Amino acid sequence: MARIIAIGDGMDEAINAASVILALGRPVAIPTETVYGLAADATNPAAITSIYETKGRPRFNPLICHMADLDMAEQHAEFDPLSRRLAEHFWPGPLTLVLALKPESDIHPLATAGLDSVGIRVPVGFTGDLIRHFGRPLAAPSANSSGKISPTSAAHVDGDLGDRINLVIDGGACEVGVESTILKVEDGEIHLLRPGGVSVEDIEAFAGVPVQRPKIAGAAIIEAPGMLASHYAPNAGVRLNATSVGRLEALLNFGNTAVAGQDDSRMVLNLSPAGDLAEAAANLFDYLKQADATGAVAIAVAPVPDTGLGEAINDRLVRAAAPRDAEGPVE
């Protein structure tokens, strides 16, 4: 099983231990403000291969490359004026920008899936400090088996990948709880590739221009993580916009929504009794895991507003439900 080091027991110990594993070309599970990431040296092809192998992730799905700061990011990517403004305002934070890769960048093509662009983010807290100490960008998708529920605690990582990796850095529960928002600027327009921890409304309010959403879900070229139709999936089926729940199902409620049959269901968890979308986002993946652990045949999810962070929550739920969306309650 993986060694677990809590940041609270010593920041230097955590950074030094992680740096040793990274220098050996092996992946380390690290906390970010969004979800836990499976990090490895983005310039080392063997290290990147170890990410794909550990996760069972398809190699056509590119990896986000995490940087210590904007200065490091500029060594690897070309920033148009609007992308630079977005980076200066939202970094460090849960925003990823897809940018043109500089020819002189030593990020390996395995990390970009051979594309001439790269997804870059500057994370908050420990990961930024680790990258600064390590001195090279880290490729870091979520630290879970490919397609499964993303981890928001060290225990989630250990339960899934603990027998496949050497080290997990425990930074407690992730504050945001869903992955970063991914944007790409083309011809002065902002295109949303994945909703996430920064709401579209906040981006539009800052940038002063509308954010363009994909016209057809699932039709885009895979140029950023989280764009596969099926993703974030528990073992149980997921049923959305539920107004009733069966005895063999678990329920994820939101706010004070009345859901028929909830008293007889396997489990009831409320993403946010107060109807707070930030609280719901922070609870989403943990509650999906808890509901899945009951052995329920399906997880019924009450309606969640599709505004603010609700757009990211619903994006994850739609992808979790994609393979096996049920028509009604399972009795």
Rank of each mutant, 00 (worst) to 15 (best):
R316L: 10
T34G: 01
V245S: 07
N283M: 14
V330W: 14
A224P: 03
P234F: 07
G237Y: 07
S153K: 13
L193D: 05
R266F: 01
L248W: 12
L38F: 03
N314M: 14
D315L: 12
I21R: 03
A296H: 03
Y287D: 04
V268N: 06
A320L: 07
A260N: 09
D116M: 15
I169N: 02
V200Q: 05
V259P: 12
N283C: 02
G25V: 12
S146E: 08
N256Y: 07
K55H: 06
Y52K: 00
G128E: 03
G37R: 03
A278Q: 11
H66M: 14
G218A: 13
T127Q: 14
S153F: 08
L192Y: 09
G275Q: 08
R132F: 09
L99S: 01
N270S: 13
V185G: 08
D306G: 06
A296K: 04
D263L: 12
A155R: 12
L167C: 07
V297K: 05
D315G: 10
V211S: 05
A293T: 15
H76E: 06
G237E: 05
P58K: 06
R85N: 10
T49Y: 03
D187E: 15
H89G: 00
L38A: 04
L110G: 00
D276A: 06
L97M: 09
I21S: 03
P195T: 02
S50R: 12
F285L: 10
